[in-house]
Amino acid sequence: MNTTLKSYDPRFTPPVDQVSVEERCARFTTRSIKKSTKVNGLKLAMSMIDLTTLEGKDSEGKVRQLCYKAMHPHDAMPGIPQVAAVCVYPTMVKVAKKALKGSAINVAAVATAFPSGMAPLQVKLDDTHYAVEEGADEIDMVISRGKFLQGEYNFVFDEIAAVKEACGKAHLKVILETGELSTLDNVRKASDLAILAGADFIKTSTGKIQPAATMPVTLVMLEAIRDYYYATGKMIGMKPAGGIATSKLALHYLVMVNETLGAQWLNPDWFRFGASKLANDILMQLMKEQTGNYQSLNYFSND
């Protein structure tokens, strides 16, 4: 990858070998992680969660409830870390910010006409400015997949760069929406493009399109981050989102991060899970380790 360019040139993106990516991913699921290692892994995963509610029916009450869950995952069991961030729509940022006051939990806002991204640039920038002014610490933007698939890489590049500028001090996560990119080669191209355009994090999906995050897609994105790190020494964060609902799968992802990027990425500053159901599954597993009994969702708060 040529990192000195001020635009993106797809000729510098290496091709992806889909077969070997899938085989490599299958290997990550064979590590045996038990007992105290498992407990530590689960607690780490818990601390990396972006607790998310992105529905048209979201209300202030629902967001406040989610924020409470973020701060008090399960009070019956002490020693559970809080999640990394709460992820909401821009109009809910102020509510979340107020509810999370005094905690170290960030507020992430999805901006730029989430989830489709079908809006003029000025609308996207206004959306971003609004979210930042409301107090968002992190902005999750979507790329224009239509333009990307048409090969208009410069358009997508400029858009990301403009949003990055609009973010100011807020961290920028760029959502590639890999479910709409069709091939792993496209995923790799979009990853390189987003990184060069100024993304602090690259993120797989909005959660509104199936398939959302998968292990092969995440591996390809992690490899883009790794290659960029080798070339420049700069670290980029990674956030798989959508479809990661079980503790076991979360541990597989942690194994993948550790074996692709190394332990320095294994903290909430550099790796996040975008999830809503995962938190309760982790809590049930931790409770199972503590009590020895299989748990029921009935005894854990919804959000």
Binding site: N293, Y294, Q295, S296, N298, Y299
Partner: peptide, 8 residues
């Protein structure tokens, strides 16, 4: 034991 302890 698992039959009788499972919380679900």
């Amino acid at each position: 034991v698992p039959f009788t302890t499972h919380m679900d």
